[in-house]
Design a protein around this nucleic acid. Structure first.
Length: 478
DNA sequence: CTGGGGATGGGGCCC
DNA sequence: AGGGCCCCATCCCCA
């Protein structure tokens, strides 16, 4: 009897022990799985952080070099003229802008070269297009090159081209030669670039051109591809008459979701919200500004690059206005300045060393002169001219406009957005009228004829200027 | 160097 | 409100 009892006890104990072991094993397995999952996630995060770090380093190097270049040029400009600044404005940026020739075929913007991330190296001609999601898209480094110019980097490059220029391979690997890591190389590059720009002033801002295809016609595009994620970004290069957007490349997210693009809608909202009746000195408006500014900074990974000044924006005339207007705003409203993009810009600007500051000051002074001259000529100012109620303020320069559309169009001056592209060439314009006027270049239509000679002109203004030849009126020298 | 013309940028006005 | 037109300023090229 006792024997049987012991046997039963033993069997029960065994069952219990097995159950306990099984339980323990299950727990261990579960924990192990969780542990593995956590490790995997940690590794993912590490990778993302590493990428981010690399990207930051890339940007930093590019920025520093560009700033060094700019500094030297500023010094040089003291002994020459402001034109030099204009001439080299492309370099003044933290990175090289997309430079597009005005009608010259020496370089086409369908020849971009994208450099995949992870290189850890940098060149001056690097354009870093930072994706909004670093992990998913990673940085894309873009090099500028001119036709016939061989650019090389020591990193694996993925160059994707416009199918029209590379019909055989939509995505081809291209050998690129680094122009150089020295300042001289940059100067050379810029010189070349200027030549390539054809009109010089036409440094088409740069950029990332997101595109809204209105007509939906199939058009050649170039792809910015990313090695890791395989994300493909379609950048408009559509020679057709599409609705294209050019954006300042700086740290603009590559994502084409323009809704989140602080350069556009959000800021227009801002502009609409800051529909002050007067100057921004009013407290309430300042508060609004602060809120909006904070919002902009928080909503987007976009950071105002110190080098992303408007010198490089490609709008020769607009540039001057921008800085001075910014400056005015900064001078008249410290609160705004504290949170304004430009202030952020300057804060982040390593140029803010004593010497560099004076250089920046010099730049401001120079552009102020031009700005003042133009303002006088036009009898308008940022918030002056009360002939009409201008409730809509440009968030970049504080200039007032009578409608949200006006300010939206105006802000393209700052953002570089050029929605209207020519079907015949690669020119892009900020306004439809500009495109229409430009089309006469291709059609040869010259509706404006001189009554005193047989000359005709495509533009009324040119006819008017021409007629001074007959009247003897001297053309104002610039 | 200068003048003339081509062309673009920016903004105002009008419908 | 939105679009189109116009004007002025300016850059660039060329003779």
């Amino acid at each position: 009897m006792a024997m049987v009892f012991h046997t039963q006890i033993a069997s029960i104990m065994e069952v219990l022990a097995n159950a306990a072991v099984a339980e323990i094993c299950k727990l261990v397995d579960d924990d192990y799985a969780v542990f593995r999952l956590e490790i995997t996630q940690s590794q993912k995060e590490n990778r993302a952080l590493r990428r981010k770090l690399q990207l930051q380093e890339l940007k930093k190097v590019a920025r520093e070099r560009a700033e060094r270049t700019m500094r030297e040029r500023v010094i040089a400009s003291r002994f020459s003229s402001v034109k030099i600044l204009d001439r080299y404005r492309g370099i003044a940026r933290g990175h090289v802008s997309f430079v597009k020739p005005a009608g010259h075929n020496t370089w086409r913007d369908d020849q971009p070269i994208t450099v995949d991330e992870g290189s850890g190296t940098s060149t001056q001609q690097v354009i870093i297009i930072e994706s909004a999601d670093v992990e998913s898209a990673g940085p894309v480094v873009k090099l500028e090159r001119s036709e016939g110019e061989h650019i090389q980097t020591g990193v694996p490059l993925v160059a994707t081209e416009d199918p029209t220029t590379a019909p055989a391979a939509p995505r081809t690997r291209r050998s690129i030669m680094k122009v150089g890591g020295t300042l001289n190389a940059v100067l050379k590059s810029e010189t070349d670039t200027k030549n390539l720009m054809g009109q010089g002033r036409l440094g088409c801002p740069p950029a990332l051109r997101s595109e809204y295809l209105l007509d939906g016609n199939p058009s050649p595009r170039m792809d910015l591809s990313h090695q890791d994620s395989g994300d493909t970004l379609q950048i408009g290069n559509d020679p057709s008459c599409s609705y294209a957007t050019e954006m300042i490349p700086s740290d603009m997210p590559v994502g084409l979701d323009t809704q989140t693009n602080p350069m556009r809608g959000d800021w227009n909202q801002y502009s609409s919200s800051v529909n002050s009746e007067g100057s921004l000195d009013k407290k309430g408006e300042v508060i609004v500004l602060d809120e909006v500014t904070v919002k902009v900074e928080g909503d987007s990974p976009l950071t105002w690059n110190a080098n992303e000044t408007h010198f490089g924006e490609g709008h020769t005339q607009g540039n001057t206005n921008d800085f001075s207007d910014y400056r005015k705003s900064l001078e008249t409203n410290l609160t705004v300045a504290t949170h304004s993009p430009l202030h952020t810009l300057r804060d982040r600007d390593p140029l803010s060393t004593p010497m560099a500051s004076s250089d920046s000051q010099y730049l401001f002074d120079q552009v102020l002169i031009s700005k003042d001259q133009r303002a006088k000529a036009r009898g308008g100012g940022a918030t002056s001219g009360n002939s009409k109620e201008k409730r809509f303020l440009c968030m970049f320069c504080n200039k007032g406009f009578s409608s949200s559309q006006k300010v939206e169009i105006h802000q393209r001056v700052h953002t570089g957005e050029k929605p209207f592209s020519c079907t015949q060439c690669h020119m892009r314009f900020t306004q439809a009228g500009d495109l229409k006027r430009h089309q006469r270049v291709h059609t040869g239509v010259k509706p404006f004829s001189c009554t005193q000679c047989h000359m005709s002109f495509a533009q009324a203004g040119n006819l008017k200027r021409h007629q001074r030849v007959h009247t003897g009126e001297k053309t104002a020298t610039p």
